[in-house]
Structures are given as C-alpha cells and as structure tokens.
Computed example of a mutant assay.
Amino acid sequence: MKCFKRLLSAGLALAMTLTLAACGTTSGENAGQDTASSEPVRIATKPMTEQYILGEMLGLLIEQAGYDVEITKGVGGGTSNIQPAMEAGEFDLYPEYTSSGWVLVLDHQAEGVDDEAMFTQLQEEYEENFGMTWVGMYGFNNTFTVAVRGDIAEQYGLEDTSDLAAVAGELTFGGNPDYIEREDGFGALCQTYGLEFGDVVDIDIGLKYQALAGGDIDVTNAFTTDAQLANPDTDLVTLADDKHLQVNYFCSTVVRQDALEKFPSLEDVLLQMDGILTDQEMASLNYQVEVEGLDEQDVARDFLTQKGLLEA
C-alpha cells in the first residue's frame, strides 16, 4: 500500500523533517521500478485551499506513475519558508507562482517583464542558483482583480477598470487592510486608474464577499481564482485590467533537479499539468472545497478523471 500522507502544518518548513520521517514506504512494492522509486516524492504546499487542491493533483498523478508520495500541507510563510526547505532537500517539489518566484526568490522587479521571458529566466536562474527548475504551466493566473456587484456593473455599464473613474465617487470600496496598505495595492490602483471613491473601508478578507452581497460595499479587491467568484448565488462582475497594472501569477511546479534524476518519469508526469486549468476552473474547484465542503483530494481526483488524466 503506497504512502500518500497529507501532513497539516502552519509551522516552519524546516520543522517538517521529523513529521516527514514518520511516513515510511515499503521497498520493492512497485515492481519494475528503479531502487530510488522506493523513496517518496515529497510535495509541499502553501496554506491556502488552491494549493491544497494542486498538491493533491500532483500527488495523484505521481502516485499513478508508480511512485510513493508525501504531501506536507500548509507550510506557514509560503514561499519564504518552502524555498529554503527546498534548497535544503526537505522537499522535492511544490506549486509556485511566477511573479512570486521572480520577486520573492530572485529579487527582481515584476513590472514590465514579458511572461514568456520571465518563465525562461526563472528556469535558468533556478537551475543555476538552486539546482531546481520550473516544469509546465497549469494555465490559470491567480492575480489581483477588481470585483463589483452585478447590479452596480449593470447600472453604470462597468466592464473595464477604467470605467470606474467616472462613478467611483458614488461608490464604496471595501478592501482587506494589507491590500489597502501595500505599495502595489489600493494606492497603485487608484493612481493608475484615477479613482476617488466616495468611501473606503477596511474589511476582513473573509467578509468581503458577504459585505458585497449585503450592499455594505460596492467594490472590492479580489483574486482571479477566488472561490466566491464561482458562487452561482453571488452576482459579481470582475473588471478587466485594461491598463495592465497587475503582474501575472501563473502557476507551475518548482522541482529539484536531483528529484528529476532520482525519479526518471517525474518530469513527464509534471508536464501532464500543463495547461489543464483556467481561472474559472480553479475558482470552481476552490468553491467546491471552501463553500460546498468537499474534500480537496476528492475534488482533485474528480477533476483529473474528467480531464482524462487519471484512471477512473
């Protein structure tokens, strides 16, 4: 029986070592594989629903290829703790976002960089500096967007973020404090699009959509794969970023080069994730887990099966 262990933690990535050691594998149970395959492929994820689902997808596909899998879920600090743990060999791979790696790991400026050029340079610099690479591009882009109530969008004919400029004075913007305070957040949005809202309120990230639905606010910041954007009971419209303010956060797999050597078919498995998810599909999967209460592994398995990537 393969070890598919999903570990929950909000602590530092390096503190996962003892927990990971508790998940053993049985040598020789995968007939025909090389001896290295008796070791598990170790996956880490950030502490967010989307990452939990992606981690399960990766785990299911890797397990189908005959390898054992260990998944450490919810590593506190995300990139800032997973990256050094990857460098130390604590994990083999994890789902990461292009601009996060570009800015947080490589310390580059994201603005004005072509997405294709960024991905190529990410691969080159990760290989040169860390002995890692990026494999595949899942397809969706989890970046900032502006969401408004459907009735507001219809009333004022809002389609692009630029359309807000003429009517912002009549609207209330509600955003979570870190977005309002961050340099590339609310201030950059208002400056780029010439927005002066009638009122601006701080609101907890978990209450934004409830406040929108209740009419307490009219506009909020969102991420393009937020679960509530897929809620059929919520009438919301996201506005196009027509002045291209936001940088892109495409998701891919960061993997250690030695893991690709240790597990010969791993790269081919990871490439199965290439282009399989749209923004809307990722939001829908997040909704199934966050709102409908489904198990993330079940959601991941059903999606991969529907895509023909997983045997029923």
Score class of each variant (00 low, 15 high):
Ala85Arg: 02
Leu260Asn: 12
Ile152Thr: 14
Gly214Gln: 15
Pro84Ala: 10
Gly275Thr: 11
Leu285Cys: 13
Pro264Thr: 11
Ala85Lys: 07
Ala300His: 11
Asn142Gln: 11
Arg301Lys: 12
Ala165Ser: 15
Gly174Trp: 11
Ala188Ser: 06
Ile43Gln: 04
Thr120Gln: 15
Gly32Leu: 08
Ala15Cys: 01
Ala117Pro: 01
Arg6Glu: 13
Glu311Asn: 11
Asn142Pro: 01
Thr72Gln: 09
Ile82Asn: 05
Asp163Phe: 02
Ala259Pro: 11
Thr49Leu: 03
Ile205Asn: 12
Thr49Arg: 04
Ala88Thr: 09
Tyr287Val: 09
Arg6Ser: 14
Gln51Trp: 02
Gln191Cys: 00
Val201Leu: 13
Phe223Val: 03
Val255Tyr: 08
Thr224Ser: 15
Thr238Asn: 06
Leu61Gly: 06
Ile62Pro: 05
Glu116Gln: 12
Gly55Tyr: 04
Ala227Glu: 00
Glu125Ala: 09
Phe119Cys: 03
Thr98Gly: 13
Cys3Val: 13
Pro264His: 10
Phe197Glu: 04
Met273Lys: 03
Val200Arg: 02
Thr224Gly: 01
Pro84Glu: 01
Leu195Trp: 09
Phe223Asp: 15
Asn142Ser: 15
Pro177Leu: 13
Asn221Phe: 07
Phe197Met: 07
Glu183Cys: 01
Gly198Val: 09
Val135Pro: 01
Asp302Phe: 03
Asp274Leu: 04
Ala213Lys: 14
Phe140Trp: 08
Arg149Tyr: 01
Ser38Gly: 01
Asp298Gly: 11
Glu170Trp: 04
Phe223Asn: 15
Thr238Lys: 03
Gly215His: 03
Glu296Val: 08
Leu158Phe: 06
Asn248Gln: 14
Gly66Thr: 08
Gly169Cys: 07
Glu128Tyr: 07
Thr79Arg: 02
Thr133Lys: 00
Ile53Lys: 02
Ala21His: 13
Tyr249Arg: 11
Thr143Trp: 00
Gly11Lys: 08
Phe303Gly: 00
Ala10Lys: 08
Val167Gly: 05
Val167Arg: 05
Asp218Lys: 03
Phe197Ile: 05
Gly194Leu: 10
Leu58Ala: 15
Leu104Arg: 13
Gly157Thr: 08
Gln272Pro: 10
Gly206Glu: 14
Asp204Thr: 08
Ile62Tyr: 06
Ile205Arg: 10
Leu158Ile: 08
Ala36Glu: 14
Thr26Met: 12
Glu39His: 14
Arg182Glu: 13
Asp295Asn: 12
Gly28Gln: 07
Phe173Ser: 04
Asp298Cys: 00
Asn231Gly: 00
Gly77Glu: 14
Asp92Asn: 10
Met282Asn: 06
Gly157Glu: 05
Ile152Ser: 00
Lys262His: 12
Leu20Phe: 06
Asp242Lys: 00
Gly101Glu: 11
Ser27Cys: 13
Ala153His: 05
Asn231Asp: 15
Ala36His: 11
Leu304Lys: 04
Val255His: 07
Ala222Gly: 03
Gly215Val: 00
Val254Glu: 14
Leu229Glu: 02
Leu122Asn: 01
Tyr179Lys: 03
Leu7His: 09
Ala259Gly: 10
Glu124Tyr: 07
Ser37Pro: 00
